[in-house]
Design a binder for these strands. Structure first.
Lengths: 228, 228
DNA sequence: CGAGACGTTGAAGAAGGTCAATGCAAGTGG
DNA sequence: CCACTTGCATTGACCTTCTTCAACGTCTCG
């Protein structure tokens, strides 16, 4: 479950990513020196209860941060995309699971070193502050969507959020590198409702679905309208 | 809506507050020198779109942070209790409203000064980081509750959360310094469902309600069980 | 006192969940 | 190579939970 980080060159590092909603911390000191670990799809980076040994920077792929309840229900807290960090802003042991939705690469930095550095380097500490602030904003946006939105509204804002995050090849072509169940658990819905809602959006000619996991936005204005 | 801060002695500052869920930043530098502003119930400290001029430390009362959608739906993001800070972890203009649920006092510190200080003082920057991290944890706990919980589970965890936060005179006696509509908008429910659920908890002899706004927990174990 | 804000309760309706069947593509083993 | 399994997505029928709409009670404050 928690294999030792293996050193390796980071080959898949995308730099051209757009992220209007996030404020990624470019070049958090020390992150260029960390080792890179390869994570298989569905493999856990860490689990709830594990000691918080590292902070990870996603180099490639998508990691789902989630909380699993005792009866199996699961809430995904956030999807971490390349450039995002996971493991920041926590104290003591991990409170969430971090699981790869697809094959990933993450860069690892020992927590102790980071905290040690931050206590001495105001610029680093300030960047940590900004990184966590960005996560806070994202969590609150999601909360508004889940707390107030209908299924249709949640799916629409999810697609818009992803449009701003994922490294897509074409404008308006969004790759969904996760299963329906991941989307459902992010939005507080069931896979059936996610599926039905996507179908409805297809019928409305707002989106088009290619190969199951690639969503083409046909009517961006209408989608924004629906998202509220 | 945004009256000039008025200088005044902070008389109502409670120090004996317990907050197991939060990690308040005791003595954020500069906060002892800020002016104190009195806020009436339902008055806004700031609104969405206002320039982010100050960070506020709650001295007395409770402030609701919320997002109001175009059609009037509202999601409360957090309740800020004495010792908590609002206005941290944001960039540019305010994205949320901050509204007093009851008469409050807040201590004001100009944002520019704080950021100026933080860029030079690693200890301050690190405390800011911790303060925002605590908010992030709270937001994520709420998200799990709203995304996965039934009405009963949401209300139960809400009560438990408050038990850890509010400065209560007696153990197991929780004051609710907000209206039912505030609770509803926090938990993604309607006031009717909140009311019915509280009634159900009363019928189950898990809680007792005194004077409408004071909740006595009769069976804490059962309540934790229900919260999941 | 009367008006307004807030809370509670009931009845009816809708959105989404649950259960179940089907489809479909990618392995896997004979 | 083909039968079989397995994981994931879609769709339909039914049901539960929560919302909506409405009435009423209570309290406060002008």
């Amino acid at each position: 479950m928690y294999s030792a980080p293996q050193t390796e060159q980071a080959t898949g590092f995308k730099t051209g990513r757009k992220a209007p909603n996030r404020h990624p911390v470019d070049g958090l000191d020390g992150f260029h020196s960390g080792t890179v670990r390869r994570i298989e799809a569905k493999e856990h980076v860490f689990c709830e209860g594990d000691p918080r040994t590292h902070v990870y920077r996603i180099e490639d792929g998508v990691i789902a941060l989630s909380k699993v309840l005792s009866d199996g229900r699961r809430q995904i807290i956030d999807f971490a995309y390349p450039g995002d960090y996971i493991g920041l802003g926590m104290f003591g042991d991990h409170v969430f699971d971090a699981q790869a939705t697809c094959a990933c690469k993450v860069r690892c930095l020992p927590t102790s070193q980071l905290e040690h550095d931050a206590a001495r380097d105001p610029a680093l500490a300030f960047r940590l502050y900004n990184a966590v602030s960005a996560e806070l904003s994202a969590a609150r946006r999601l909360l508004v969507s889940v707390g107030q939105g209908t299924a249709m509204e949640r799916i629409a804002s999810f697609l818009i959020e992803l449009k701003g995050r994922s490294g897509h090849l074409e404008e308006d072509l969004i790759n969904l590198p996760m299963r329906r169940s991941d989307i459902a658990d992010l939005l507080g819905l069931t896979i059936e409702t996610v599926s039905r809602t996507l179908t409805k959006l297809r019928m409305m000619r707002v989106i088009e679905i290619q190969n199951g996991n690639d969503v083409r936005i046909l009517d961006a204005n209408r989608l924004e309208e629906i998202a509220g």
